[in-house]
């Protein structure tokens, strides 16, 4: 028993670089050899799906991209999944960006989904209005008069020359708002300055780290469902029946979580044994 305790304490003091290597291996292995672990949509992901699914055909949807390359693995699969669902149902999509990098992410997602998969027409089925600096002021601008905020789109086409912008003056002309957000400014600001004051139905997809911050708005009914991190993206892909990069990362995510939990338990046992031993020494 003493030998076992010695071993546990010794392993508890192992160089942290071994832990990095183990995590790297367990994350990498499922990427090369997928395990096919089941994905079960959560209630909040289902609510996002139901809300979008219930929109009447030809609805005008405002999609805001507030993420960049650093959070791409979590948010980009959500943006792609939501775009697929929206285009499948024949909605018109207006894309804005509160982050400068969001414009590149949105362009990439639109190229993949709208152009390559659905062969849609720019300006008639979708438009990338692009990035405008100003954080909350941009949201206020879209809420009050979008034409003052955007005189040209991301391709420098005057707004007046874009067919699908006819009749769009402010946020009340949209039927639904989706915020793909990785932080500030993002979902919280859209709720505070757009969804709550105007009553426009809104859903969101956020990074895992933001879930606790945004969840109270979902529970209070201020947001209709939330896609929470990479699992949220994978669940949405499952709901629309189109597996993508979110689904492929979930095996690695699940295995890594199990290993981290084991490390935490093991670390605590080692810490407990070490403390007991030092108490006996003194």
């Amino acid at each position: 028993m003493k030998k076992l305790a010695d071993l546990v304490i010794k392993l508890g003091n192992v160089d942290r670089r071994w832990i990095f290597i183990i995590i790297a291996i367990v994350v990498m292995y499922p990427l090369f050899k997928p395990l096919g672990l089941p994905i079960r949509p959560s209630e909040s992901s289902q609510e996002v799906f139901n809300t979008i699914d219930a929109l009447p055909q030809g609805s005008k949807v405002l999609l805001s991209c507030e993420y960049g390359p650093s959070t791409k693995p979590e948010i980009h699969p959500m943006a792609i999944g939501v775009l697929r669902h929206l285009f499948e149902k024949g909605h018109q999509v207006y894309v804005t960006c509160l982050w400068p990098d969001g414009q590149f992410m949105a362009r990439e997602a639109l190229e993949q989904v709208a152009e390559n998969e659905y062969n849609l027409t720019y300006g008639e089925d979708y438009v990338l209005l692009g990035f405008r600096p100003g954080n909350e002021a941009v949201i206020k601008g879209i809420v009050s008069d979008i034409r003052k905020m955007y005189t040209i789109d991301s391709r420098a086409i005057p707004i007046a020359d874009i067919p699908m912008m006819n009749g769009i003056t402010n946020i009340s002309d949209f039927d639904f708002l989706f915020s793909a957000s990785a932080g500030y400014p993002g979902t919280v600001e859209w709720v505070q300055l757009a969804a709550d004051p105007t009553g426009i139905p809104m859903s969101t997809g956020v990074t895992s780290i933001q879930v606790n911050e945004v969840m109270p708005y979902v529970d209070a009914g201020q947001i209709k469902g939330i896609l929470a991190g990479m699992p949220g993206a994978a669940e949405y892909e499952k709901l629309i029946g189109k597996p993508g990069i979110g689904t492929s990362g979930m095996d690695a995510q699940s295995i890594a979580h199990v290993v981290i939990v084991l490390f935490i338990i093991f670390g605590n046992i080692a810490y407990y044994l070490e403390r007991q031993r030092s108490k006996k020494t003194f």
Binding site: I23, A24, V27, M28, L31, F32, S70, T71, K72, P73, E74, T207, S208, I209, V211, N212, A228, G229, M230, P231, I245, S248, G249, A252, Q253, A256, H257, I260
Partner: peptide, 22 residues
Amino acid sequence: ASFGFAVMGRISLLIGRFTDLK
């Protein structure tokens, strides 16, 4: 819960990088 979500987020980013490296 915040810690759990933070771990999940970091692992997601790691997966993203490894996917690109792959």
